[in-house]
Design a protein around this nucleic acid. Structure first.
Length: 291
DNA sequence: GCGTCCAGGTCTACC
DNA sequence: GGTAGACCTGGACGC
């Protein structure tokens, strides 16, 4: 049985721009139907998998949820979180108003970076993006969900809980997930979160200044400068650029005649955007995805 | 078929 | 604090 839930859309929100904001929509338990323009996600609540389909219907967002037993308020909260419905981007839009290359961002309601319902899931996925091709990232995340996620392959599997990930050893990550040298990192991370020693969800509401919060994030094995700054963006702090090889190559192409340059030159280019610079570079480099 | 390079980097040892 | 070398995987590429 399917139940429909509805959320009123905020001003300046664009469903497609948000879903296409980065590659997360390709990583399970997300799935995207680009013909009907529906975003699927399998929520994991209380050890159960709850498949849902999210799409626009008029001026509202409709969420079709499978099953009878689910927490309606939690589903709504999670959807608001993953689509960043409560983010206030007016500061960004004011800053780039009239800018030759960036005025499209406000016109297209862009700037909301799709994220997972939990910081833990974003943390694991971010580690899966490091030092490998996007294809391998997809493979590792797919293996994690298929082998350790709650639910069935037919109805859909949720992202594994910290406890489920802590329940397997390094060899499992190496042989089944194909995570290579990241394998012991996942064991250590899952143990820390499952035991309560580490609470990545607290990063969402942390009072720490960004440099201090970044240091906290980098204490997690496998999280370096790029990964920490990517996670900072996903918790709503945009004062780091999160430079990786893809972002650098796009900058060279768009702003440096396709020639490599030092990171400092990229940093100088976006310095004027202050606390929004991390989001500005991301929008600047992903314009073709949205337009 | 085989070797090399590199992709949405990070860790450790060493200076 | 800065840097060299090692690290899994798998696809692309040259030979």
């Amino acid at each position: 049985m399917t139940h429909a839930l509805y959320i009123d859309l905020p001003e300046h929100f664009n469903f497609r721009s948000t879903v296409y904001s980065h590659g997360w929509c390709e990583l399970p338990p997300f799935a995207l139907d680009t013909e009907k323009w529906r975003l699927s996600y399998v929520f994991g609540h209380a050890g159960k998998s709850i498949p849902a389909v999210i799409y626009e219907q008029g001026k509202r967002l409709r969420i079709d949820v499978e099953g009878d037993k689910f927490d309606k308020e939690q589903i709504i909260r999670d959807v608001r979180h993953i689509l960043r419905l409560d983010d206030d981007l007016n500061g960004l839009y004011d800053l780039i108003a009239g800018h030759e290359r960036l005025s499209w961002v406000a016109d297209k309601g862009a700037g909301r970076m799709l994220r997972s319902p939990t910081v833990f899931e974003d943390l694991v996925k971010t580690i899966c993006t490091t030092n490998c091709s996007w294809g391998l990232t997809k493979s590792m995340v797919n293996n994690l969900v298929e082998t350790l996620g709650a639910g069935s392959l037919r109805s859909g599997k949720a992202f594994p809980t910290p406890a489920a990930m802590a329940d397997v050893d390094s060899d499992f990550y190496r042989n089944e997930i194909r995570a290579g040298y990241r394998s012991p990192y996942f064991v250590e991370l899952a143990d820390a979160v499952a035991s309560g020693k580490l609470d990545p969800e607290a990063w969402l509401t942390s009072d720490l200044p960004t440099p201090e919060l970044k240091k906290e994030m980098k204490k997690v094995k496998g999280v370096g400068d790029y990964a920490a700054e990517n996670l900072l963006k996903l918790v709503g702090r945009y004062d780091g650029l999160a430079l990786d090889s893809w972002l650098r190559s796009q900058f060279y192409k768009n702003h440096n005649n396709e020639k490599p340059c030092p990171d400092k030159k990229i940093e100088r280019h976006y310095k004027k955007f202050g606390e929004w610079r991390g989001l500005v570079i991301w929008c600047d480099m992903t314009e073709k995805w949205i337009n």
